[in-house]
Amino acid sequence: MYFENLAMLGNYAPFFLKGVWTTIWLSAVCLALATVTGLVVGTLHQLAWKPVRALITVYIHLVRGTPFLVQLFIIFFLLPELVGLELSPIPSALVALLIHGTAYIAAIFSAGVASIPKGQWEATAAQGLSLMQTLRHVAFPQIFQFVLPPLVGQYVLLIKDTTVVSIVGVTELTKSGLLIASRIPEGVTIFSVIGVFYFLICYPLVHLANRLEQRFTPTAGN
C-alpha cells in the first residue's frame, strides 16, 4: 500500500521538486549571508568598542532566548510597517533567517577570536601589523579549525529552521507537503518522502560535522 501511495505521489513530483528547490536556495542564501555577517559581528563582539560589544551580547542572548517561530512572526508583522510596503512572505522569511543565523554564527566566531592568546595580538602589534592584517594573516587562519565543526553543525540547524518559514506562507518543502496532505490523506507517505529529502540535504553535513569534530577536537585529559 505504501508503494501505491508513493506512485500516486509521483503526480505531485514537480510540486515537490519546486519545494525542494525553494528550500535549497533559501538555505544557501541564508547560510552564505549569515556566515559573512556572523563573521563580522562575531569579530566585533571581541574587538569593538565596549558599548558595541554589550549591544552584540544582548542581541545574541535575545535571539538565543526566543524561539525562531516568534522571531519570524515579529519580523513578518513588523517589516512591512518599517519599509511601508506590502511584502511577499519571502523577504520577511529571509530577514528573519538572517537575523537568527547571524546571532548563532557570530557566537561561534566570537569564541574563535577569543581563543587567540593575548600574546599574539601584542606580538603582531609590536611587529607593526594593523588590526586587519592581524585578523587576516594571524587570527583567522588559526580559528578556522576551531570554528569549522560548530559552524557546520550550525548550518544543519539553520537548514532545518527554514521549515518554520512555511507558516508565514513560503512554499518550501514542508509547506508543499502540507498542501499535498490537505488534498490526499496520506500523511505517512508524504512526510516520509519529505523527511528523505531533508535527510539527503542534511546528512552529508551532519556526517561532515562529525568528521571535523573527530579531527579537530582534542580529547580532554590526554
Binding site: V156, K160, D161, T163, V164, S166, T174, G177, L178, A181, P185, E186, G187, V188, I190, F191, S192, I194, G195, Y198, F199, C202, Y203, V206
Partner: peptide, 23 residues
Amino acid sequence: IESIRSTPLLVQLYFLYFGLPEI
C-alpha cells in the same frame, strides 16, 4: 540518532500528527 538529527522537528511533528491516525 542520525535520522532524527538529519530531519527537521516540524517534519517529524507533521509525520506523527498526520501519520499516526492513518495507522
